[in-house]
Each structure stands twice: as structure tokens, then as C-alpha cells.
Design a protein around this nucleic acid. Structure first.
Lengths: 240, 240
DNA sequence: CAATGCTTTTCATTCAATGAAACCAAGGCA
DNA sequence: TGCCTTGGTTTCATTGAATGAAAAGCATTG
């Protein structure tokens, strides 16, 4: 469902491996995390690894606490991974972005009444890493942690765009139905000190995001992106 | 600083490896994530791996987007890892716990005016996976994502305790200075359908958590644990 | 420019990873 | 009840993938 691995730089063919076991362990970890709870055979199939080998790797991951195995035999996220996950939000390049973007997301939902997302680039894909959901009954949900191609999507275009001059309003990008039919996306790029580093997406049903509502969405998403960009270019706190 | 790996079941000696490269890649990933931004040599040293090998592994991790390498050469969290991290909060055994515990954490801070944490067990350690910080100037901060031994700590004792009969108040555990001097911890276990699965910790300066304040902390932490436990034993939503 | 500290490449050696096959355990079903 | 299918687990001989010492780059600094 959610995205094959993204070879940031295309590795040669795919039969040429350089550290197979490592790659495979990561692939398994990824499958389990993104797919929720999976059985050995499912995980092995999804990652295209013989079960005997997959078993050994999954065992390693559970021994280390990165995964857990419930009574039914399903594998899922383990405490050690959760530890890393929360730690990764405390520091690192994305922590600052997520913190700076939070108010923007909230205001976007308030103004547009649609769901707002924060996306970043991952190789040839875009990843949605944060959201505030619309409070309406019909709303866009469930894209956090999901990745979509850059090609042909509004997020993609925004993430690949040139950063506007500091303090100026970025251009918004509009698209309907690129990923899912009847979903309209209004996106604006967020710039950091070194170019575009993320994007705000307002996502809602195509028949609702028209006319005045669309104008409001466009205006507020560029506004939010601009404000977040300025916040990010202010003096950065010292590193640990 | 934060915890050597935790062999949930002790693997044989430690010189007997079964999938070295995999172990090492995980070790490197872990070091980078928990230590923020590190250089090749630092990461290699911390994980006790020859630099040439470490380099190869770190490259794999960056190619896959799990890590990024900034202009200075430091490695830190990458978009692919953030994707997994946020995905891991959407589902999995800990998602439910964290969601159920959030209101409890907030009320604990409101009542006790100290920082409150949620901890879970990871092998022979406890991991703090969520927090709401006290609003006071002097307060306990920065333990999210950190792990501490079960042995000799209040969290440890709570996590290893027997689950109380459903609907009854759990016993609280008290400790001062086990991890850091002058820090008092008031802890109560949270039970799920299958025994103790987590714990609430109220942490504050030893000289402040005394007398009436301590009584309040004890009462509210057991109360919160009880309420969260009941919430968790209610009908669970269907799995994907 | 010599010295120092990191990073990167190379390459011969070996040991760790591999997966096919055999084996178990547990349902399902007639 | 016993047969059969569908996972999961173990074994073990084979091989090629992982390894790391050493040497070579490449900045930075005094």
C-alpha cells in the first residue's frame, strides 16, 4: 500500500547487492512498521525474502526490542523503536520544522475547514509527516506516514520549486485527483535557510474546494508557508 | 548516555554473531537517532565498529533515506525514518496506549504541577515514550526517548509489579535519587488486558515533592493509572 | 607547508548469510 | 477420527558477501 522503498539515487540494477542482510532487515522493519501487524509469511512476501531468512531477521529485530511478537504471532512496533521514534522528534532536522509548522497547520484548519498536512521530500517521493484534521464530517484523513510520488503531484511540484525571495509569498500549486480521485490539493512550499524544505498541503473534496473556498485556501496556505519560513530562518537554538 | 542495547533474552556471549551487518546497521541507526547529529568517526566509535565498515553502513542508511548527511558531514534523522516514526504512532500496540494515556498525563500535570511521563518496558529497561511538562520554572525535562534500568528504579518496580484486580486502584511506588540525585519519582502501573503494560511517572525536585504535595501526587497518579487502565480494557477498535 | 584529524577507497581473506528441503504444529474438513 | 493444507521452525552444506588493515585523499590549522 504505502510506497516501495525510495532509492534516493538509483542503485545500479537491483540484483547487485552490497549488504544484503542489512538491506533486508531494514526492509522488514519498514514493512512491519508501515503495515501495522503482520505475520512472518506476509512480511517475508511483502519484502520478497525467503521465509527462513526473514524469520532470522525478524527474530533479530524482536530480540533487540525494535519489534514485538504478540500471542497470535503477528509482528508489530516494539518499545525500542518507539524510543527512537520519540527521540527523533526531540532533535534532528525535522524536529524544528515540525515544531515551527504546528501553528500553521492549526490555523489552516481553522480558516479553511479542511485537513492540513506537512510534507517533506524523500528522494523521489514526498512524505506526509504531520497533520491537523478538519473538524468536518467529510474530511481528508489518514495520510500521515504515507508517501506519494513527486512526479505529477501538487506536493511534488511545490517541493521541487525554487524558493521565493525571503519574506515574499510563495506560489501555490493546485491539483485534483493526482493521487485519489475527487481530492483537491492546495500546496505551498516552505523554505529554510537552504531552499525549500517542506510544504503545506490543504486537502479536501474536489466539489467543496471551489470558488471562494478555494481562494481562501490558496491565500491562507501561502500565508502560512511564508510565516513558517520566516520562523525557520530566525536564529536557531544551540545544538545539544 | 542513553542505554546500551537491551537483549530481551540474553543472546549467548556477545562475540558470537549471527548477522553482524544487520546488527551493526541497527546499532548505527540507533546511535545516530538518539545522539542527534554525529560524524562518521563518532558514530563508528560509539557503536564500536571500524570506520570503513561504518561508512559503508551509514551510506546504505542515507541512500535509503533513513538518515541524512548535512554539509558538515554529520549524520542525522532522515525523511524515511520520520515516515516510519509517524506511522508507528498511527497503529501498533503503543499507539492505543499513548492515545489513552494523553489525558491522564495532562491531568497529572494540572493537579500536581510536576512533569508527568508515560513509560513502557523494553527488556531489562524502561523507556519514557511520552510526557507533558510541568509549567513551573523548576521542572523535570528531557527524558522522553530515554531509557533507564528496571533494577532499583521506581518505574522498574511498577512495570514489574502484579496488575491489580480490574477496577481497583494500583499501588504507587516512590523513589528518590535512583537515576538522578534530588529527583523524586511517584509511579503507578497501567494495566491492559494482559497485565501491566506501562506506567505513569510524576517527577519533580525532591525538596518540593513532600508532605501534602506528595500525597496529592500519589493519589492522582494512582487515579490516573486506574482510569487509563479502564479505558484500555474497553472494546478495542478493529484492526486494519 | 608540515602536521593533524576525518573521510574515502582498495582488495585479499574468511566467515557469516543464505535458502532448499525436511520437519513440526495447528487448524479445517470430510 | 484421520487426512490435508497452511504457517512456522530447524538444519546444514555452499558461496559470495561482509570485513577491516592499510594506504591514500582532503581539508583545516598552527
Amino acid at each position: 500500500m504505502a510506497s516501495e522503498r525510495a532509492p534516493s539515487h538509483g542503485e545500479p540494477p537491483s540484483t547487485l547487492h552490497q549488504s544484503r542482510s542489512a538491506e533486508r532487515v531494514l526492509a522488514l522493519l519498514d514493512t512491519v512498521i508501515t503495515n501495522g501487524a503482520v505475520s512472518l509469511t506476509d512480511a517475508a512476501a511483502e519484502a520478497d525474502i525467503p521465509t527462513s531468512t526473514a524469520l532470522r531477521h525478524l527474530r533479530l529485530l524482536t530480540n533487540r526490542g525494535y519489534l514485538v511478537r504478540d500471542d497470535r504471532g503477528w509482528y508489530s512496533v516494539g518499545p525500542a523503536f518507539v524510543r527512537m521514534a520519540v527521540a527523533s522528534f526531540q532533535s534532528g532536522p525535522y524536529a524544528r520544522l515540525m515544531a515551527a509548522a504546528q501553528p500553521g497547520l492549526e490555523r489552516l484548519v481553522e480558516i479553511t475547514e479542511e485537513s492540513a498536512y506537512l510534507a517533506v521530500r524523500d528522494g523521489i517521493e514526498a512524505v506526509y509527516i504531520a497533520t491537523v484534521e478538519s473538524r468536518r464530517a467529510i474530511r481528508h484523513v489518514g495520510w500521515v506516514g504515507k508517501s506519494v510520488p513527486l512526479q505529477g503531484t501538487a506536493v511534488g511540484k511545490a517541493l521541487l520549486s525554487e524558493a521565493p525571495a525571503p519574506g515574499t509569498r510563495p506560489r501555490s500549486v493546485l491539483n485534483t485527483g493526482a493521487i485519489e480521485p475527487d481530492v483537491t490539493a492546495v500546496v505551498a512550499p516552505i523554505s529554510g535557510p537552504a531552499g525549500v524544505i517542506g510544504a503545506f498541503s490543504v486537502l479536501g473534496p474536489a466539489e467543496r474546494l471551489v470558488g471562494e473556498r478555494l481562494e481562501i485556501a490558496t491565500a491562507s496556505v501561502t500565508q502560512a508557508a511564508m510565516e513558517t519560513s520566516s520562523a525557520l530562518s530566525e536564529a536557531r537554538p544551540v545544538l545539544p
